[in-house]
Design a protein around this nucleic acid. Structure first.
Lengths: 330, 330
DNA sequence: GCTCGGTCTTAAATCGTTTCAATATGAGCG
DNA sequence: CGCTCATATTGAAACGATTTAAGACCGAGC
């Protein structure tokens, strides 16, 4: 910057003003400075700026699994909203790994980010508190876990579970299998709980829970195999998968075994990722407004940043929506 | 840090040494300093450290489309390799948008990142040069576009195109349709070119190119519809899709129209994303070693960072591999 | 001709670390 | 006991921007 100042024949302070407070500098001087900058290829040093200003404009985001289209959709919403206000996004992937999550949170703390969006994988309340106490705004995404003290944005899992189940009952299915787990995951708990309630309210029908350890395609395959091996009388006529990855695995196994979807077994997924609509037999799915969730979380975060003291904790709950496709009605 | 020094009864310089050069500090002092740090909850300010050190340990990565599983797989490889050396990754998504790509490159320049991995979306050679001249290492991923002067890692598209085509010919198919575009994309050009060569070499058979503007699921749907509307005599008995997203769209349309895969039409995709193996009829696909590509690019980048002058430009070309599944052989 | 008010510009202090030359400490040795 | 040498610690100077109070300049008004 000193070089720029020298070339333009002004002091470093004026160069800074030209860049950050253009109204304080006469147009002629400003012009001279700008051309000196481009001539020298000067690029301001962000570290120095941050050090002096005391804040970092960037926003950090820690997602659970970057390979899951649901999370990339959320990230997309975040990115979009941030682009509007010109703040950069630093995206990090914890991969459900607590250690990596902690490492990233520590990194963000050192970087003095102005805000962090996080879907916690492990026990990180203390670290989040410390971050917050040091002036970083926090919003929890897609979780409400114990974090009553932080604003959050999530989707109503009970409603989602109910919508899917009522739909299956309405199209005449009575033996519903729910594939997903583990049950201590709040999402699973709520979706399955609401499904059970819906069956009870309906009066007829039954629901069985097929517990699987993970929420991926392979879990869907093994789950489906297990169901197909049941004696015909106990075989379900509908499957409610805890997410679309599982549903895709189920669909694959059913197809390979020659079971007709939806004729023999109807199938409902959850999330409505792009690949649900792209499946050979397009999946009926409970759509989570992922992009909207990212946007809402970002808006909330920006509010907290703007007024850390004034803004109080807020839990935004978005509504899912059932998207009916060929996997339940031909 | 001053507070920590005061509490531990030492000077700030010693606190810094305790953190960065532990061997220079006596164990007793170090112990005292560490406990002072945790008592005060001190977190070093990254901006100040960077300013003084003059470098930023972080690595930046700009991907073309974060919603495409292929790129998240590459990012995964990068992340994994970086975790080994303890460097953080800053992930950015250009979304094929030149302006956003430029904005991120400028941001990375201001941040003085030590290295950047980029899959260029637009014309950014000049900016990459400027970055490099300012001391940031650059490696181009999945492209070789005009960037002879930067190290790159890519996959042999000609080989991929040949493998897919030879396979289709070997299983007796003769009328092959290639769906993908635009042809001025080097990837498309090479895959299609090699497919044509393979057909020629084989002596019998023909290949037609169905140009589509994008490389997504919808392109596959419309492409397939177009082919199915052809008079029976001109209908292909095999489809080679430029990527798996297109192949999934094709598979969906074929399934809905009652065309049997592979009996009536065999289908080959490209990339071998996770969803290819997860399709109702598992897709035969040309596997791009995405994770390996991320790892190789990172290793190369770290080498350039370690020795910017000594290391010369290197173009690493990985080999794709044909993964045969049910969409071509029952 | 002098003062006043406003606009531009400058110089110096500052942000929180790291680094390095200089100093303090202490052990070992003749 | 004095000297040397190695080790541990200190203090001050950077790093490169932003900010703020002070100063320079200029035309206007009396």
């Amino acid at each position: 910057m000193r070089d720029v100042a020298r070339l333009a024949g002004v002091s470093p302070g004026t160069v800074s003003n030209a860049l950050n407070h253009p109204e304080k500098v006469s147009p002629a001087t400003r012009e001279r400075i700008l051309s000196a900058i481009s001539e020298l290829g000067f690029v301001p040093n962000d570290a120095a700026r941050q050090l002096r200003r005391g804040t970092n404009a960037s926003i950090g985001m820690i997602v659970l699994d970057i390979a899951n289209p649901f999370f990339t959709a959320v990230a997309h919403g975040v990115e979009q909203r941030l682009a509007e206000v010109g703040r950069p996004l630093v995206l990090a992937n914890s991969g459900q790994n607590h250690e990596r999550e902690v490492a990233y949170l520590d990194l963000f703390a050192e970087q003095r980010l102005s805000g962090v969006l996080v879907t916690p994988a492990g026990q990180v309340l203390d670290r989040l508190r410390r971050l917050r106490d040091r002036g970083t705004a926090i919003v929890v995404v897609d979780r409400k876990t114990g974090a009553r003290e932080f604003s959050s944005v999530s989707v109503d899992d009970s409603l989602g579970g109910r919508l899917a189940t009522q739909h299956l009952l309405e199209i005449g299915r009575r033996r519903i299998a729910f594939i997903g787990g583990p049950e201590d995951l709040s999402q699973i708990e709520h979706r399955l709980g609401a499904a059970r309630t819906a069956v009870e309210e309906h009066g007829s029908g039954e629901i069985v829970h097929l517990d699987v350890p993970t929420l991926d395609v392979e879990a869907g395959r093994t789950g489906a195999r297990e169901l197909l091996d049941l004696p015909a009388a106990r075989r379900p006529d509908a499957i409610f998968a805890a997410n679309d990855l599982i549903a895709l695995g189920v669909l694959q196994t059913l197809t390979l075994r020659g079971v007709r979807v939806p004729d023999d077994i109807a199938l409902v997924g959850y999330d409505d990722i792009d690949f649900a609509a792209a499946a050979a037999i397009p999946l009926t799915s409970v759509r989570q407004p992922a992009v909207a969730m990212g946007e809402a979380a970002t808006t909330r975060l920006l509010d907290v940043i703007a007024d850390p003291a004034g803004s109080q904790v807020e839990h935004i709950v978005l509504e899912p929506e059932l998207v009916v496709r060929r996997s339940t009605v031909a």
